[in-house]
Design a protein around this nucleic acid. Structure first.
Lengths: 216, 216, 216, 216
DNA sequence: AATGAATGAGAGTTCATTCAT
DNA sequence: TATGAATGAACTCTCATTCAT
């Protein structure tokens, strides 16, 4: 019996111990698409090609699996943020880089957008409860604060702009485009998911944000 | 028996025939908080003080109730939008009014934000399927287009700004503040729901957006 | 209020007091198609264009309405049976008339077949409990008995045929054709509801039954 | 706990893994007695001694269970039909065998009669939709055709009898006896379920059908 | 490490019937 | 005679989770 089972497992393309990763990958898709409440354990088991009970073996329960998926997705973002080296650029260029980055990582990580959407829809309890996820956006805030300061000092940026408020407005412009894209496309009759629409909006966001910072 | 019933009815604040409105009010709260999938018909019945089956009598099924609640909430927004008379203001003042309005109505209608959050989290299928809700934001887009044109003509606004992209970025700045407020407050350790935070962000958004439009 | 209502009632084509008949007509259709358990009071109310509660006013409950519909349908059959005057015909002609009649009345009264089907499917409790419906087929049995006797006496019919068994086999040949027509048509790929099929089977039944009675 | 469970399992007559068969057996009884609509999943679960949800685990839904029960019942009939070897008999004996068989299998399989009754009462949608159940009776039709031909060739059977019509009238005589037995017994005051009644009717049917086929 | 079988809690929905006027 | 509003009981089905191996 056990022999035939492991044979079948290998036939399904899994290595020994690869089941955990397969589950996690399927969970990220499922949770991103349907949220913690809407996701189905059955579906995750089916997608990852493992027995449902194995999910409980590895992750305890649905909540545990969700937490693991959430942290995995956030972990990828954090790595990307580490790569931003704004201090070597001029303040306006640095800010352009930062705005563009905040747009690009959302564009490139639909799973992240999906998780964030559902998290906020359900009151973000889980993010708030996870110590791992608390210090999340802080590196960006610090970067903005420094860059703002440099730009004000050099006279090209306006004074009195609050870094956190600026972060929220910059992030919001991009977030809204992706998170509400379906509604917007439908209501305004323009396909915002089209490559041209995306790159046009990216340009708009960078220009608009930069202009909003400039001293007159 | 009949006495206790009328007492209960009055306790729930219903007049004769007011059951339908009571259900709708409870539904707006419940759907806004938990979305269409997460909302519980039992809960709505309990909150509105009516028999659960009465909900089916009036609205057919959960989906029908959701549609009614969604359209009721949107209906209120639409009335507010009608009151905007931008053409009598100077272009920059008109745009300030518009940005402020897009912030204020989200601030004043948490039910609307709640519905929108869940709608987008679930792919906005329902908004897309409702003919009543199509063409919804178009009045705002038309206002933006006209105001932009006037501002460019008078030389105060930059050229080449797309009205839809501008709308998305303006709306996004406010939407993100409210929809992701819980997460943001927690992560950055500042209570964004506090009155001072809200009014500060309102000021920031108006200033930032206006500056972003100005010709240099 | 009451004025506007009676106006509406007349507008719907009902005379004063015609509601009862409208309900009964709709009930016969509905019960015949779906049986006592499957029929829906809502549907009967909708079909007859009356308020649901009126059904309870007139008939007490669903069971009472069913009984009324059942007896109405059976009443029509009984009237038809009264018209059979076999004694003036020669025994073989009389038997032909009888077999043909037992076929024709089923062909002409789909509501009767429908009721009978469902009644038997549910164990025929209702027919058994209704004193009105007890003496139902007896006239036919008596006719068969007399005709058989005459035929045996005149030497054209075989001896020893039990009248009740004969009745059952004659009735069964026709009943099965109509009650199981849908299944048979589908399984054997011949449209038994077509006019040609019906008249061909009618001829077959009469010939087959008569030949089965003949002395050799 | 685990002890009481295994006791219960044994009390219900199940071996390990026998739950599926226990469900199916209970389903055949329940569906046969009450039809697809009238049957209660709760009742089937209780009768088979399993948890209600296990039914959904194995059969998906009530409809799936019904289909499985229907095919199981039909499957048994089909096996019986395979055993008929008419070609070795003289045409009249072959026909007697066939008529008797069509009576006997109904007598011996009340579940089959029950299913058929309800199927036809509800329009036979399910039989029509099941590819497995199409072409079901065709072997019998082919047997009748061949036997008729042989009898006509040898001069003992009449000419011009349509095999399908003959099948319907033969099947109908037996079907009606069983399907409407309750009504008939009650109306005519003779217990048709009694052994003597059954065997008398069996003799009648065989004689009557054979006589109906004979050339004069 | 892995699996098929089994379960309890609860959700949405249907429907005959009654209330109150 | 007629009606809209309201209700309780029951039913099918879903889903996370546990049992037993």
């Amino acid at each position: 019996m056990s022999t035939s089972r492991s044979v079948r497992a290998k036939a399904a393309g899994k290595e020994a111990g690869g089941a955990r990763e397969a589950i996690l990958a399927a969970a990220r898709q499922e949770f991103s698409a349907k949220g913690a409440a809407g996701a189905r354990v059955n579906e995750i088991a089916a997608r990852s090609g493992v027995n449902k009970q194995l999910i409980y073996y590895y992750f305890g329960n649905k909540e545990g699996l969700y937490a693991a998926a959430l942290e995995a997705v956030y972990g990828e973002i954090r790595e990307l943020e580490q790569g931003l080296l704004l201090e070597e650029e001029a303040p306006d260029d640095a800010m352009r880089t930062l705005v563009a980055f905040s747009f690009d990582y959302l564009a490139a990580h639909p799973e992240f957008i999906g998780m964030l959407k559902h998290e906020n829809a359900s009151g973000a309890q889980r993010i708030r409860q996870s110590p791992t996820l608390q210090g999340l956006n802080s590196p960006l805030i610090a970067m903005i604060r420094k860059t703002l300061k440099r730009g004000v000092a050099s006279g090209i940026f306006r004074q009195g702009i609050d870094p956190l408020n600026l972060y929220i407005s910059i992030a919001g412009m991009s977030y809204f485009f992706f998170s509400n894209g379906a509604t917007l496309s439908s209501i305004f009759g323009r396909d915002l998911a089209a490559v041209r629409s995306v790159s046009a909006y990216r340009r708009h966001v960078v220009d608009f944000a930069l202009a909003g910072l400039m001293a007159r």
